[in-house]
Every structure is written in structure tokens, then in C-alpha cells.
């Protein structure tokens, strides 16, 4: 927690070559130049969840997709950083939710869409159902000179990456130069954000040790259902908002229960993120977006 930083502090870091924030206005800060591109991070949709924390549980993801599709400039790719579905003990129901989620995600105009599991998708069956729909839970890809690594810290119910995956990660990183631009996607935080609420990866410190030699590396994750920024050494870790319900700030309340739905401000605390990446330096610029525009939210509230 000691390295947690707020937006104002992070803006100061931006001056040191870290990251910059922008408003959530579509197109702002996402008008990439020749050496930039941007992607969109959607997270923690929990398709299948029902309950008072989100009376529009069946509509929120679809509205977010509509908002993404309306972005003035479309991203190069979109990634969902886990908890695509809400967990269920029933394997058939799990597959039904994954199938429905896949169908909804297919409405995205951008067709390069990448996925990774959260513990709600994967922990009860070690990703068996997830893999039927999306394939491997760990993978890498390269885009315009930037190396992307997707790690899996959820398929093990105890939130360990495990020795085999850590060896795979180390071997992949060895192929990179220490100044290569690298982005890592995880579902859980790799650092011990707040283990009292299970906001950690059991062997995450070992992963971070592997990442530390790389100067231009940034981590994006989900799981905690809120925007959060943290530094481990020179590595920035950015948590994304959820698309189902927000959670409280770590340790701010006795229980990690969802924040109540605010009927006067539907979808408050929910949203998604655009990330602009400089292909030379790996520097990232973050833009936070609401699920719907204000006027749309009010219209929804009236119906």
C-alpha cells in the first residue's frame, strides 16, 4: 500500500517519463501519432451476475460496447482482463455464460479482441471451460514493436502462477532487450495490494522480480473493480474499473462488499480505459471512459 499513488502524484510521475492521464472524452489523448497506437482495456464484466449492486447487469456490458464502438478513433485492439463471467458451481451454466459473453463481445466493431480469464471464469475448473472458448490462458503477442505478455494468476484457485509459468515468463523475457517496450496483462495484482481482501498473487513477488530488469514495462490488471495506480520500483501497475459493480478502496470498510448502486448516477464507478502506447519508449497514456455518456445514463434511469 505504501507505493499507492493518486492521480495528482501520478501526473508528477508523468513528467519523469511514466504515464499521462487524460479526460474520458472520446478521442482525447487517443489521437495517436505515427509512433503511437492505442488499445482499449475492458475488465470484470461478470456476465451472469444478478443483484442490487447493478440493476442493469444484463445491459451494462452491452452499453459499454456501444460506447467503445462509438469512439471517434477505433483502437488497434481490445483486451478483456478477466472475470468475463460471474462464477457458478454448475459447469453447464459456466459454459452458457461464457457462450453468451462471447456472443455479446462479438458486437465490438474492432475484430482484434483478446481475452484472459479471471478467477470467476477459471478457478473452479482450472480454466477447463475457459480454454474451450478462448484457448490458452497465457500467451504473448507483438504489435507495432511493443511486446505484450498475458499471464495467468487465476486458474490456480490459490492465486499462484506456479513455477512452470514463471519459467515460461522468464524465458519469454529473455528474448527481449532490457529497453524493449513491454506491456504485461494480469487479472489479479502481481503485487500485494491488500492481501486481507485477497488482492494479491501468492507468488507475484517472483514475477515482479523477473519484470524489474526491463526499463520500459507497464502492467495492466483488473480484479479490484476500481482505478488504481501503484509503482513497484520503476514499474507502473494500473487497475481498471469494472463493468458490473465497483468495490471499495482497500481497507476503507470492514467488508469488501460491492458499493451500492446510485440511482441518481447510474453506472457510477464503472467504466473502461483507453491506453495509448508510444512504440519507441513504451510510455503509456491512460484515458478513463464512463460506460455511457451522462445524457444516456439519465435516459436509462428514466426507463
Amino acid at each position: 500500500m505504501s507505493n499507492a499513488i493518486d492521480r495528482r502524484d501520478f501526473l508528477k510521475l508523468a513528467g519523469l517519463g511514466g504515464v499521462v492521464f487524460a479526460s474520458g472524452l472520446p478521442g482525447f489523448a487517443l489521437a495517436a501519432g505515427q509512433d503511437e497506437f492505442y488499445f482499449v482495456q475492458l475488465s470484470d464484466c461478470h456476465w451472469g451476475f444478478e443483484g442490487p449492486p447493478n440493476p442493469d447487469a444484463k445491459g451494462t456490458l452491452k452499453k459499454a460496447i456501444t460506447t467503445v464502438n462509438a469512439l471517434e478513433r477505433q483502437p488497434d485492439f481490445i483486451i478483456f482482463t478477466g472475470d468475463l463471467t460471474h462464477t457458478t458451481d454448475d459447469p453447464a451454466e459456466r459454459r452458457r455464460r461464457l457462450s453468451e459473453f462471447t456472443q455479446i463481445a462479438s458486437d465490438l466493431k474492432v475484430k482484434t479482441v483478446r481475452f484472459m480469464p479471471g478467477e470467476h471464469d477459471s478457478a473452479l475448473d482450472n480454466s477447463a471451460a475457459y480454454r474451450e472458448f478462448f484457448g490458452a490462458t497465457t500467451y504473448t503477442f507483438d504489435h507495432k514493436g511493443v511486446h505484450f505478455i498475458v499471464v495467468d494468476n487465476v486458474s490456480d484457485a490459490g492465486a499462484s502462477m506456479g513455477g512452470e509459468q514463471l519459467e515460461w515468463l522468464a524465458a519469454d523475457l529473455r528474448q527481449q532487450k532490457t529497453d524493449s517496450p513491454i506491456v504485461v496483462f494480469a487479472h489479479r495484482p502481481l503485487f500485494a495490494l491488500y492481501p486481507q481482501w485477497d488482492w494479491a498473487t501468492r507468488d507475484g513477488a517472483r514475477a515482479i522480480d523477473l519484470l524489474l530488469p526491463y526499463k520500459n514495462l507497464t502492467v495492466f490488471y483488473g480484479h479490484i473493480h476500481q482505478e488504481h495506480h501503484h509503482m513497484t520500483g520503476h514499474i507502473a501497475h494500473h487497475a481498471a474499473k469494472s463493468l458490473i459493480f465497483p468495490l471499495p478502496v482497500a481497507g476503507s470498510v470492514p467488508k469488501r462488499a460491492p458499493l451500492a448502486w446510485d440511482a441518481s448516477e447510474p453506472y457510477k464507478g464503472l467504466g473502461f480505459r483507453g491506453v495509448s502506447v508510444d512504440t519507441q519508449s513504451g510510455q503509456t497514456a491512460l484515458s478513463e471512459f464512463t460506460v455511457v455518456k451522462k445524457a444516456q445514463a439519465n435516459a436509462t434511469d428514466k426507463t
Binding site: 458451481d89 478457478a123 473452479l124 490459490g158 492465486a159 481482501w197 485477497d198 469488501r256 462488499a257
Partner: peptide, 17 residues
């Protein structure tokens, strides 16, 4: 001292503390 279940065990796991 807080304690919790840190092995994901299903819907409701988050309240197991």
C-alpha cells in the same frame, strides 16, 4: 487480526472471512 479464505471456492468466496 483479519483472516480470510484465500483459495477461491465459489460465488460467496469473497465474503468468507
Amino acid at each position: 487480526v483479519e483472516f480470510l479464505c484465500d483459495v477461491f471456492c465459489g460465488s460467496g468466496h469473497e465474503e468468507m472471512n
